[in-house]
Design a binder for these strands. Structure first.
Length: 233
DNA sequence: GCCCAGGTGGGTA
DNA sequence: TACCCACATGGG
């Protein structure tokens, strides 16, 4: 009588197998990626906000500016003027918008959390995610990056690269919307922060190095299991 | 010159 | 919901 249920369970198991197979191929090809760069959870959060639509190299420059100016702490960044902060953030682009976003995070931290970052990050995952998403400038990808890389909790991070790579592999939702993609990974993989951490980093590495907008299928480690690689349009 | 880079928020149909 | 645009610097 549970034929349908059984069937969907089997399908889910196959999806899970495929996702793990992709992971192992990526890991075999590229090795451990060591994400997220950053010396502290606070630095990871600042990086997560600053890297929105920006190259990581430029994020490093901006963080170096903040450190050189002696304002790289929640308290200092909360108190510095928007204008001064913007000047230090110039290298990341969108520096006014990002100064606003960074201070929106710090406003929330001081308003709701008394400036206690560790306490915020210690919240249970669903509540932490909800709190982060309520902050101006923190959308789902940045929220999940903070949860995964700064709080060490298993929230899968989806970005444009993820959609591109898995769309070509013939896996995942047809929609481009964020939540269906996140659910797809969360429901198909064990809730393991170190797995999510490495997987997301490997996807980005693969997209940057091989699965370009015009992909380099002849050098791809996924050739044998990727429908796109076997018959590009 | 042109495209892209580890997105998000606000506005409109 | 589904697009569109602003936000802006740096590198290939």
């Amino acid at each position: 009588m549970n034929r349908k249920l059984t069937r969907s369970t089997v399908m889910a198991a196959k999806t899970s197998e495929k996702l793990l197979a992709v992971f192992h191929r990526l890991y075999a090809r590229y090795g451990p990626q060591g994400w997220w760069p950053g010396e502290s959870p606070f630095e990871m959060i600042v990086g997560a906000i600053l890297t929105q639509a920006a190259a990581w190299r430029n994020v490093e420059r901006a963080i170096a500016n903040l450190k050189a100016a002696g304002v790289f702490s929640p308290q200092d960044l909360h108190q510095i003027s928007r204008e001064d902060l913007g000047r230090l953030l110039r290298p990341v682009g969108y520096f006014n918008a990002k100064a606003h976003k960074l201070q929106a995070f710090l406003d929330a931290l001081y308003r709701d959390g008394h400036g206690d970052l560790a306490r915020l990050l210690a919240l249970p995952l669903p509540e932490l995610r909800e709190r982060l998403l309520a902050i101006h400038g923190i959308g789902p990808e940045t929220a999940d990056a903070i949860i995964l890389y700064a709080a060490g909790k298993p929230s899968f991070v989806v970005d444009a690269y993820t959609r591109r790579v898995f769309h070509r592999l013939g896996l995942g939702p047809t929609s481009d919307a964020y939540e269906p993609w996140r659910s797809f990974f969360m429901e198909s993989l064990p809730a393991d922060a170190s797995l999510f951490n490495e997987y997301h980093a490997l996807i980005d590495r693969h997209a940057k190095e091989t699965c370009w907008r015009v992909p380099l299928c002849d050098r791809c480690c996924m050739r044998e299991i990727c429908p796109y690689g076997q018959s590009p349009p």
